[in-house]
Amino acid sequence: MNDNVITVDSLVKSFNGVVAVNDVSFDVSRGEIFGFLGPNGAGKTTTINILCTLLKPDSGRAFVNGYDVLKYKHEVRESIGLVFQDPSLDDRLTGWENLEFHAYVYHIPKTERKRRMIEVLDMVALTDRAHDLVRTYSGGMKRRLEIARGLLHYPHILFLDEPTIGLDPQTRNYIWNYIEDLKKREEITIFLTTHYMEEAEHCERIAIIDRGKIIAMDTPDNLKRMIGGDVIRLKTKDDNRARKEILSLFPQVEMLPDKDTISFKVSKGDEFIPPLIRGLGVEIISINLHRPTLDDVFLKLTGREIREEGMDETASLRFAPFGRPTRR
């Protein structure tokens, strides 16, 4: 049996003539943390919605946990857990009741129900608030409860659509520690979408998606290597002498034009620094290593920054009190 838990083959979906997902194909293997990185409106959520059977694709096929998403909707739904971009809790019920509802709907056996609910609540540290109405929860607590709920039925795949959007950095870290912890303990595949670079770094593999197309797919490190190396900035007592020495010692480096400091490109900056310090006969004042970020990768691939266009739309969505997102 092949070990791909998600297989997507030439998926196309458009809304009123606007192509949201344009011929997307990829595989996710069992136990992987796979991320979709791209600006808002790139087609991330549309892809997730197709995979979790909320949307029908115009063409192409997708298999989740071995089930065709068009033919075996109910089986697909039973195999997955979902944390949506927007809250999907019943705020008139308590946290406990929300979990209870989920447990019934996913048909968790009666003997298991209570134990698992206690377990997941404990995992997200909400045990003492379990019997409060969800409307009294903070944004971070709601998100944690949703993650707990998404895991309650032990899904094979957990879909996280922008799991930390709108959360403060502390909660964001907390959720990520938790997800990584979970990965270690359970045989679970995680599929997430994000437009935060830092978040994408947590993934084992990333697909960069822009305007409905996957433009690159690899591990974060390999993607960053596409940029062509790290940049080292150096300040010394005698820059001219140092420049000459570096070029004679390491002929492979690429000097960059810079007046105040010595800047050059190397392929693996972290491994380059120790021999540099050992070999250089000039006293070093400061040394700085800039590693390419995924932002640089996106910039190189599209000529645009990922954040710029992302911000305004998200902001308007988050702050409109009754702004129902029209995107899918």
Binding site: T53, H74, E78, D86, S88, L89, V105, Y106, R324
Partner: peptide, 17 residues
Amino acid sequence: WDREFGFLKEVLVSPVP
């Protein structure tokens, strides 16, 4: 109400018909 506050999604994506 459920659509506005998102709960409908939880229901629609669950395995119940």
